[in-house]
Amino acid sequence: MNFLNNLILTLITMSKADAPIAWQLGFQDPATPVMEGIIDLHHDIWAFMTMVSIFVTWMLCRTLYHFNKKSNPTPEKIVHGATLEIVWTTLPAIILAFIAFSSFALLYSLDEIVDPAVTIKVVGAQWYWHYEYSDYIYPGNEIGVTPISFDSYMIADDDLEKGHLRLLEVDNRVVVPVHTHLRFILTAADVIHSWAIPSLGIKTDCVPGRLNQTSAFIKREGIYYGQCSEICGVNHAFMPIVVEAVGLDDYINWVAQKIEESA
């Protein structure tokens, strides 16, 4: 009974959550324009797939019904039709062109970096994340010293509080403002990691000796959960990611508190 209840609940809500849920079948609730575009592209391709599958299934069933030994014992002479061959070659090409145009627009938006208001450096390590906010310099701070930097470790099961998600909660969250262009610069300290947050539409590799970058524009406040998506060692499954999107006033207060602590 519990299985049916969970399955029905998932089908109704279509997984509208910012973290994985039991029996999840759909995407997480999108929080950025990029993730909205990814979901729209997925639905468009599914629509084409459904129409093509129905048509091909109908053609196969019709062929099996009309052209079998019982209903048609004398096979007719095979006739080539130039018009039919042109149609079944051109129509799939047109469908692929529609999919390609949508894909190109989405790929362009994924690579586009708008002038960012906040830049965060993400460093993957075995097996935790290190974050640096290098935009904020205060009087007396030494040159080259990042005023806001911290490590983010997964909270063990014994230390979880009520409401925390097992294997997904961390001791230090990445706090960012909403309605702000964000830039993430990603690298790794040892092996290849992958910084992935489904609700934000982000999945970027962190490669040692190389800087990758991605952007985000979060449209609503919330807590977004992700995990390393590149097999990086024995504790690969225990380095989650938590991004907390807050209002601008709350973000300013958080930055001021972090600078005061580091000073």
Rank of each mutant, 00 (worst) to 15 (best):
E260P: 00
N253E: 12
A196S: 12
N2G: 08
Q126E: 15
Q257P: 00
I218P: 02
E221Q: 15
H164D: 15
D171H: 09
Y128V: 01
C228V: 03
W88R: 15
I231C: 05
Q257W: 03
Y133H: 14
S103L: 14
L4A: 12
D171A: 05
M49D: 15
I148F: 08
I202H: 03
A216R: 05
A93P: 03
G247V: 07
H130P: 01
Y133C: 07
D205Q: 09
K203D: 11
F104V: 15
N235Q: 12
T83F: 14
Q24K: 10
C61M: 11
L41A: 06
P33S: 05
D157I: 08
M239K: 07
M154K: 04
L165D: 02
Y225D: 02
N5E: 12
L41V: 01
M59F: 11
C228T: 04
M59C: 13
I252F: 01
V114R: 15
P208W: 00
A189R: 05
F27W: 13
W195S: 00
S15Y: 01
Q126R: 12
A216M: 06
Y136W: 14
D40Q: 15
M154C: 08
N72W: 05
G144L: 09
H80D: 07
K16D: 10
Y138S: 09
C61Q: 08
Q257A: 13
F67N: 09
I21R: 12
H236Q: 08
T119G: 07
I192L: 02
G209T: 03
I148G: 08
I197A: 05
S71Q: 09
D205L: 07
V87G: 02
A189N: 11
Q257T: 10
C228E: 09
L4K: 08
H179D: 14
T187A: 03
H179Y: 13
N72K: 11
E244V: 07
I39W: 02
E230F: 01
W127T: 09
T57V: 07
K219Q: 12
V242N: 01
E169V: 05
K70T: 11
L96S: 12
C206A: 15
A263Q: 14
I38P: 00
L167G: 03
A196T: 09
D205G: 00
S53M: 13
P177M: 08
S194C: 08
W23P: 00
S109N: 11
K219V: 02
D40N: 13
V122E: 00
T187F: 04
E161T: 10
V145R: 14
T204S: 00
V176Q: 06
H43Y: 14
K162I: 13
L165S: 04
M14I: 06
A125L: 10
K219I: 01
I148H: 09
E132S: 15
Y251H: 14
G124D: 02
W23K: 10
I45L: 08
T204R: 01
F27H: 10
H179R: 14
P240I: 05
N68Q: 03
A117L: 14
A19D: 03
E36A: 10
P92I: 06
M51A: 11
T119R: 15
I202F: 04
V242E: 07
Q257H: 11
T32S: 07
F150L: 05
